[in-house]
């Protein structure tokens, strides 16, 4: 009897020490959930809970100490670093995967490639007709995500050179509606994650060297980093809890974990 209680207590203790919380980016959320699922399958004692809310929410929770790992689709901002510093904590940043953003158009569109400058012109409203970029005489209809999304911010910073979108840009609440709208609008252009490219839409090749080389968004070009519109996805954790979260983070970085990355539709780390 006594040994049973001790065993039970020990089991409880280990399960508590292995319990960890992940919180943050909705982009990383499906990946985090899948990783947690298979991690718990192979490691019965572990308990990992994953919740979304946005990168900002996750990083704020990390500072407050209400989460063990913050999932983030962007680098920690200056303001967040300062808050962490004020709280006397230090964090560690781990890149767990990459996400490639593809620029997509309607399949009937003859344009197959665009330079970064052309994309900037289109999204900031300077280029209004497809004939200006080598297509037919057709008005360009620009679809974007809502301004609150991290994808919106990333695209603005890395493709639009930090300029604001034109106000005539159509804002869609979700990636699914962008695909739906682009597939039924002839002059449409938009951006979605690599995993969402479907037959109903066509992705265009992108050039970041003023038109010398154009590269299409595929798993291969994203893996070898030749495709330019790619962003890292991060886990952040406090150095004080490194011991508890390390096994899970290591699992995500392992060959098995990286296989899940590819299954979810993100780009695994190249080794």
């Amino acid at each position: 009897m006594k040994t049973k209680i001790i065993l039970l207590a020990a089991a409880l203790y280990t399960s508590v020490s292995f319990a960890q919380k992940l919180k943050g980016s909705d982009t990383v959320l499906p990946l985090g959930q899948k990783e947690a699922e298979s991690y718990m399958k192979s490691n019965k004692a572990a308990k990992v809970t994953v919740t979304g809310g946005g990168s900002g929410v996750g990083l704020a929770a990390l500072v407050d100490g209400t989460t063990d790992i913050a999932m983030s689709s962007r680098k920690m901002k200056m303001g967040e670093k300062m808050k962490l510093q004020e709280a006397g904590k230090t964090s560690k940043e781990i890149t767990i995967a990459y996400d490639a953003l593809a620029v997509i158009v309607n399949p009937a569109n003859k344009v197959n490639q665009l330079t970064r400058e052309q994309i900037e012109g289109i999204f900031t409203g300077k280029i209004k007709n497809w004939k200006e970029v080598g297509g037919e005489d057709l008005q360009i209809v620009v679809y974007s995500r809502e301004s609150s999304s991290g994808t919106y911010e990333f695209f603005k910073e890395h493709v639009l050179n930090n300029k604001n979108y034109a106000s005539s840009v159509l804002a869609m609440p979700a990636t699914g509606s962008i695909i739906q709208s682009i597939s039924q609008t002839k002059g449409a252009i938009g951006y979605v994650g690599l995993a969402y490219i479907e037959k109903e839409v066509k992705d265009v090749k992108v050039s970041y060297d003023k038109g010398k080389t154009f590269i299409g968004a595929t798993m291969e070009t994203a893996k070898n980093k030749t495709y330019p519109i790619i962003r890292p996805l991060y886990y952040y954790y406090l150095t004080t809890v490194e011991k508890t979260v390390k096994p899970f983070v290591d699992f995500c970085l392992s060959a098995e974990g990286q296989k899940i990355v590819e299954q979810v539709g993100y780009v695994p780390l190249s080794k």
Partner: peptide
Amino acid sequence: IVPLIQTTFDLPVGE
């Protein structure tokens, strides 16, 4: 409705 409006009025965008 969106595609219907787009083709009926021959608009660049149906939304």
